[in-house]
Simulated scan of single mutants.
Amino acid sequence: MPKAGALSVTARPNAGALAAGAVLACLPGLAGSLIRAKVTDAGPAMRLEPIRGQERAGNEEYLDFDRNGLAAHPGRLSMRAASGGGLVVLGPPAVGVLARRAVERGDVAQLLRDGTGRLSGHLGETPEDFGFAAEDVTIRGLPAWAVPSSSASSGVWVIHVHGLGSSRSQCLRGVEAFAALGYTSLLPTYRTSLDLSPTPGRSHLGLTEWKDIEAARRYALDHGARRILFVGWSLGASIVLRTIERCPAPSTAGALLVSPALDWPAIISAQLRRAGCPGFLARWLPHTVNLIRPRGEPILRWREMPATYMGKHPSIPTMIFHGTEDRSVPVQLSRAFVSRQSQPVGFVEFDGAHHTLEWNSAPQLWNGSVQAWCRRLGLEAYVDPTYPVSEAK
């Protein structure tokens, strides 16, 4: 009871203050939801590069691009028109006022009509584009390519796992080095591969996808594999490490991780900082991704992800390839990962290479490093001196 003469005030909520409080309370959840949606988007990349001109000189055809864009990246690349169509393979750039690339294969008509296209490191869409005879196989209802060994006696199989928002054709560049050693290559799909749908469901960042790669491992063993190497590109590296962790096997000989997406909080933080987010927020926001979670989607427990926080180390021989200009997964994360391992991890940096474009920037370095690593592992190798060096054609 209030004292005589005291002002009695009944507390009445202010609608504006309540609304502001509600927004502030929801911000972490909304931010986490947006981050989760971005990180788990398994659709194709949408970045388009404008075409600045076309020229013919004799039998050669050239396309011109901005000199400061992705088109100036070292090595061969490919381009697909914004509206779709076939893949156009482009030669290495000559950089002057513009970045000029020769058209090696494909019809540029649709590219020129659109005026823009998506650049990538894919130099072919099927094994045949690289000169490989391949068999179409099905593993647990999902399509895969099996590129047989040039040596009937070789028992080494290589399982190539593509990254987020991509397809198994991403890995075709990496087959050459192993094929020259007489190894069989298996290129499986998993549940969010673009091979299956142009609009796949949300990625689980390996939490469920690893089961499809474990099925590929069992397929290889059932078809003659005695030793197995894994090659994981970007998210594929995380999927590979999860597969090895969940199903350790004496047949697993090693893992090659290409532009590996391993420490997801650090990857997200780096992207947020690049977008101008303050450092403390960039470090905190990745931990909000489970506050608002779509029905049926798993909890993303970062500390349980392979290699996150450097807490789970590879138990098998490991090699990492990473480009110094990777803007999706900073190369510093691989350097830190390697430095913290109790067992040596092979590490090759590709100067000037962007995300998953290491092979494109220096194919001889890639192939030579792979083959030297395989020999250090003591794997059986049958080198056919007549084996052709594959080229996307």
Results as ranks from 00 to 15, higher is better:
8 S>Q: 13
13 P>S: 05
15 A>Y: 10
25 A>Y: 02
26 C>Q: 09
33 S>H: 13
37 A>M: 07
40 T>W: 10
44 P>T: 12
45 A>Y: 10
49 E>S: 15
50 P>L: 12
51 I>S: 05
51 I>A: 04
52 R>P: 03
58 G>K: 08
61 E>Q: 15
69 G>C: 06
71 A>L: 09
74 P>A: 12
78 S>Y: 06
80 R>F: 06
80 R>H: 00
81 A>F: 10
86 G>H: 08
87 L>Y: 13
88 V>M: 08
97 V>Y: 12
99 A>F: 15
113 R>I: 10
120 S>T: 11
133 A>R: 13
133 A>K: 06
137 V>I: 14
137 V>G: 00
138 T>C: 05
154 S>D: 07
155 G>E: 11
158 V>G: 01
158 V>Y: 01
162 H>I: 01
163 G>E: 08
164 L>K: 10
165 G>Y: 07
169 S>T: 11
170 Q>C: 07
174 G>Y: 15
175 V>N: 00
177 A>G: 14
177 A>M: 03
178 F>I: 05
180 A>I: 01
187 L>H: 12
187 L>G: 04
190 Y>S: 00
194 L>I: 13
200 P>E: 04
205 L>D: 02
209 E>R: 04
214 E>I: 02
214 E>T: 01
214 E>P: 03
220 A>G: 06
221 L>V: 01
222 D>V: 05
224 G>K: 07
226 R>Q: 13
232 G>M: 04
232 G>L: 05
233 W>Y: 14
234 S>F: 10
236 G>I: 11
240 V>H: 03
242 R>M: 00
245 E>V: 05
253 A>L: 08
255 A>L: 06
261 A>I: 04
263 D>G: 05
264 W>H: 08
269 S>H: 01
273 R>P: 02
273 R>M: 12
280 F>C: 10
284 W>V: 04
288 T>G: 00
296 G>N: 05
305 M>V: 01
309 Y>I: 01
309 Y>R: 14
319 M>A: 08
322 H>M: 04
323 G>E: 09
326 D>T: 07
328 S>L: 15
328 S>K: 08
330 P>D: 03
330 P>V: 07
331 V>N: 00
340 R>G: 08
340 R>E: 06
346 G>F: 11
351 D>I: 10
351 D>S: 14
355 H>E: 01
356 T>S: 11
361 S>C: 13
362 A>C: 09
367 N>F: 00
369 S>G: 01
383 V>K: 09
383 V>W: 11
385 P>H: 12
391 E>L: 12
391 E>N: 09
